[in-house]
Design a binder for these strands. Structure first.
Lengths: 133, 133
DNA sequence: CTTCCTGCAAATCGTTTGCATCAGT
DNA sequence: ACTGATGCAAACGATTTGCAGGAAG
């Protein structure tokens, strides 16, 4: 992630280094507030807008993936850049696992003569740890 | 949709009747503002909160499906209650078509011992009409 | 006639912006 | 030193809430 930042000519500030740390440590999705709270531990005095700004920049750059949770709003996760995959997401703790199967591998018979650009496929469930509670 | 409302013991007000009209007429997703604007035509004097309130209630009741567009925010659409299906969505005009193929029909080999609850699968593209522009 | 629904206004939440200061190169 | 990044405060848009009056049953 630091690599992506320098490659795009950004300065590596304390806060950005910390951001990268946080996302490499995270197992699942983080809300802006989660990120802010974690930032504040090692780096008290950060401001919300710095968090937001960098989340947005990193998303535009492709270093972060966004996902909107119906309850909880927009959250972020370090994106895996090296291969296409989909996610299995725990609806309780939001931990995510990747899997390789993609429904678009086979040609689908879709209606209406669209030019296909993109697709999303996510599976939601409760992970083993959360099932025990 | 009116049926769902009465079945849940809600009163059928002018505004709610109009809401049902709007969604049965719509081909794609509508933002709260879209709904408000269309309401205001036949029914000037509606307030935003009435729109929001009823959108939320109808969503909780399952009469509306929500979808968060990365640009444009949360939008709504009458949900098709009689069978499971997925959507093909035009990223330009947001017109949506349904299709019957579901990747979960076959058992998938997913990691991590999750209890599967739910899934989403959407295909995005540009519809024939929008391609011509 | 009672209860629920509406419309208004104000509150709240998440996010963005303008600007002076500070830090990275 | 120069330029871009930060922190602060204030602005902003979208959504929610409290409350009095009005309409549906």
């Amino acid at each position: 992630m630091i690599g992506i930042m320098t490659a795009n000519g950004w300065r590596i500030t304390e806060q950005r280094r910390e951001l990268a740390e946080i996302f490499s440590r995270a197992e699942g999705y983080l809300s802006p507030k989660d990120v802010y709270d974690q930032m504040a531990v090692a780096h008290p005095g950060v401001s919300f807008d710095t968090v937001y700004r960098n989340l947005r920049l990193l998303s535009e750059m492709g270093a972060l993936e966004q996902f909107y949770f119906m309850d909880g709003g927009l959250k972020f996760r370090a994106s895996c850049l090296d291969h296409h995959h989909h996610h299995l997401i725990c609806i309780n703790c939001e931990k995510t696992l990747t899997f390789e199967y993609c429904p678009m591998e086979q040609p689908l018979d879709l209606p209406g003569n669209f030019k296909i650009i993109n697709h999303r496929f996510e599976v939601f469930g409760v992970c083993e740890a959360c099932r025990k509670e």
